[in-house]
Design a protein around this nucleic acid. Structure first.
Ligand SMILES: [Zn+2]
Ligand SMILES: [Zn+2]
Ligand SMILES: [Zn+2]
Ligand SMILES: [Zn+2]
Lengths: 154, 154
DNA sequence: TTATGCTATGTTATATTATAACAGCTATAG
DNA sequence: CTATAGCTGTTATAATATAACATAGCATAA
């Protein structure tokens, strides 16, 4: 909800990271150095990053050299809801609200690349209801909008 | 709307193909052999097909041998709204309603792979409105549900 | 303590998906 | 005919992702 408006991004990062730490303790998960650093890399900005961009960052601080390493770390973060994959872009982005995030909608600015994440409970209910009417039991949704953010002129 | 219920699929294919032919005449586009055959291949079933699966089919009837050929044909069909890409699966599917299809929602059965396509105007309006409130001007949407269809047991 | 099993990591190799770049062909309008 | 625009053929390569297996760290219980 925050990517496209002025905000204290340092605070934004700190709060996401501490939420993730808390959730890991709660769930008895190990936030290992490579997982933690991967999340930090994603949290640097609100832009989606390709897996190989993340890998390059990890490599530059000596934490990983090979694709499987970054895909594992991303897989962990995504499974736990600490990060998301943008299917349209094959890009990865940290979750802004790791403790309360369910089926968000992503808005991707085609100009600056920033991504905002927004819960859309009503739209989700309607989608699931429409699906149910067709006898389809929906268990997950991908909702991604692309367009222009308020800071990027048409 | 039709993939998950019993229906006359031959009719389904014929009607999509003739709608596409009409639209091509209207828009002065060339439905060349490779484009036409690509569409026919996608229309064989309501499952999403990978680009290289389509290519294999094209190759088996001598219409294309190399990746760029199938990606071009798919690109044409998608630009014109005659087919869609399922971003979650990197798969391609023919459009069921080529003459009236706008921003549909896709339901992908995780078990049988069939894909149904459904207009969701209300959900779309809500998504766009929510985005606008954040100062985001949405111009395109990807909405994909995954789950189980009525013929596939949990 | 040390044996045991589980989770995570390291590494090689390869699979899968997609595009850039350029050469050649074809339909058609003038 | 010939210029042009759009389509096709081909080579090469980029970009994204996973399989498979070897090794290391850690947790816990005999
Ligand atoms: Zn921020
Ligand atoms: Zn922007
Ligand atoms: Zn059908
Ligand atoms: Zn099914």
């Amino acid at each position: 909800m925050v990517a496209f408006v002025q905000h204290d991004h340092k605070r934004c990062k700190r709060s996401a990271m501490s939420a993730v730490k808390a959730l890991c303790e709660e769930r008895q998960l190990r936030l290992t150095p490579v997982r933690r650093r991967t999340l930090e890399i994603l949290l640097q900005s609100h832009k989606g990053l390709g897996a190989y961009e993340v890998l390059a960052e990890l490599a530059s601080c000596g934490l990983a050299q090979k694709p499987p390493q970054v895909y594992r770390a991303l897989g962990f973060l995504i499974e736990q809801g600490f990060a998301h994959k943008l299917e349209q872009q094959n890009a990865y982005v940290a979750c802004c609200e790791p403790s309360s995030c369910i089926n968000p909608c992503f808005m991707v600015c085609a100009s600056c690349g920033r991504v905002a994440e927004q819960p859309v409970p009503r739209a989700n209910k309607q989608l699931v209801a429409a699906a149910n009417e067709l006898g389809f039991a929906a268990s997950a949704s991908v909702i991604e909008l692309s367009g222009l953010c308020n800071e990027c002129p048409g």
